[in-house]
Simulated scan of single mutants.
Amino acid sequence: MPPPSQDTSPDLWQRYGARRSRADRAAGMDGTFHWDWYQRNGPGAELLGSLDGRAVIEVGAGTGRQAAHLARTSTACEVTALDASASMHERCRRSYGNVPRLRMVLAEATSYLVERPSTFDLVYSVFGALDFTDPRRLLPAVTASLRPGGTLVFSTLGHYRNGQACESRVRSAQLPTVLADGTPTTMERWVLDLPLWERLLARAGLDVVGVDTVRDAGRGGGPPMATRIIRAARPHVRHL
């Protein structure tokens, strides 16, 4: 098996990762699993169903909190925490390196999944790689990596943070951010409406099996937000 494919682009997540870890600790979030933007409402890990005997991967695992929660509470499954950011990967390793059945991988999601056909029973993402990778590339890779009957579950924005509606065509927003040395730059984020997600999932060979919307009134002065949680499955038999 080839080694994991690593992303050589600049690491845009170093400063965010530090802030996210501090915020999670301050809010007592370690050991929890939430899908919504403010990490407090709606369904949790139970939305994934029983994980016994299943191979699970989180794409864009970030600090690793959700993946570590699954590995700790579902003792009959193995969980891979995948992230393309070296700083996030190292933060995950430092925080959760002693958690049994948790495997941490530094790699770009699309390449990693393509190289592992029919490997996983469950692929999930909590505002992770599904938000920050062109879905026309990533979704077919997810399908390829899933075993027949396997599922994809991901949370994504139901609208932009300023309240602007989601995109009805596949285009990314350019978000301002800074590198570790303070250099200003931008990152891409895909904020797409539900009909477009449904079309993209269908083209990738996945059937939508459920959609939940969680609305948050706002927290700490933040704006009201809507989180969309989408569940899709790879059919046991390919559509003709």
Rank of each mutant, 00 (worst) to 15 (best):
A165S: 10
S9R: 15
A144P: 00
G97P: 08
D83W: 04
A202R: 13
G64F: 08
R203Q: 15
S172I: 05
H239D: 12
G222Q: 08
R199H: 12
A204P: 02
W37S: 02
S85Y: 07
L152D: 01
R22P: 00
N98G: 11
R169W: 13
S50W: 09
A226M: 07
E58M: 09
A144C: 11
L146W: 05
L12K: 08
L12N: 05
P148H: 13
D216I: 02
G210L: 08
S168K: 13
G210H: 10
S50K: 13
R72Y: 04
L139E: 02
L48V: 10
R54G: 06
V99W: 10
P43A: 09
Q39P: 00
T151R: 15
S125M: 07
R22Y: 06
G62N: 07
R203E: 15
G28Y: 12
C77E: 08
V142P: 05
L51P: 01
V153C: 10
A217N: 07
T80Y: 10
P135A: 05
A84D: 03
L194M: 14
I230R: 00
A55F: 01
R25C: 01
R161Y: 05
A204G: 09
G64Y: 13
A129C: 12
P195V: 07
T151Q: 14
T73L: 06
P223W: 03
P224Y: 06
P148D: 10
H89C: 12
D134R: 11
A18V: 15
M88E: 02
L157W: 15
G158C: 09
L196E: 03
H69S: 01
L200E: 11
M104L: 14
Q174S: 15
G42V: 04
V126A: 12
R228N: 04
A68R: 05
D181V: 09
P2G: 09
R219F: 12
S155E: 03
G221I: 12
T110N: 07
P224D: 04
V79C: 05
R15M: 03
